[in-house]
Design a binder for these strands. Structure first.
Lengths: 109, 109
DNA sequence: CCGCGGTATTCAGCGTTACTATGTACTGGT
DNA sequence: ACCAGTACATAGTAACGCTGAATACCGCGG
């Protein structure tokens, strides 16, 4: 992945994952796969797991261990109330930034 | 500033500054002021200067020292060929990211 | 004359984030 | 017994923006 993308993901990747979880609960491996499908072709698994642990510690998600037929038990994450608030906040921050950048892209400053 | 914004600026702030310089050459203090006008109300001065040094070392800009009537000489930065390429690359990366995030925002995944 | 505020740049130290590179564990197919 | 696929975890690293301070130069009011 480009270095630019790596840096740009900082701060946004968390929002992306929160948005995915807002649509429906999911577990780490699944989230990684979903990201890859969506074009984030080489987001490292380790990155996702680390992020999930972070948002769990910040109490943005509820966790449930679910046995899997293939492999170790899945940790299924679902967005809780606080997580939804954080996501709202993310959308506000994102919109703010996206607007100004889009303005720079076209109109010029 | 929100922590979210701080993290989100990582990677994008450089692009923003490159875009500002693409419109016209400018010096650090001026860029900071311009950013504040545009709504990035508390981007630290130190942050901008550090960024400018970085892009200078990566040869994305040409630098010219211009004496100032008030205060120490200004370091006026202007985008060179390589800088323009980097900016192009930035727009591509940004567009990619913005598209997927916008998709998550509305359609859902 | 001297301090103060505005202009302009620089730097050391910090916290957060994503990546690299592993390692562990469980299952089913050959 | 071995291997591939599933699933999670973690130590170490690099990059970036922020904090907080210092430095330098100028004009103006007290």
């Amino acid at each position: 992945m480009g270095k630019q993308m790596t840096e740009m993901l900082k701060g946004t990747l968390e929002g992306i994952v929160l948005a995915i979880l807002a649509a429906q609960p999911a577990y780490g491996y699944e989230i990684t796969a979903r990201l890859r499908e969506q074009g984030f072709s080489d987001i490292a698994e380790g990155t996702v797991y680390a992020l999930l642990i972070r948002i769990e510690q910040r109490r943005l998600v509820d966790v449930e261990k679910v046995p899997s037929e293939k492999g170790p038990p899945r940790k299924v994450y679902s967005l809780n109330t606080q997580g939804k608030q954080e996501l709202e906040e993310f959308w506000r921050t994102w919109s703010f930034l996206a607007e100004r950048i889009e303005q720079l892209h076209h109109g010029g400053n």
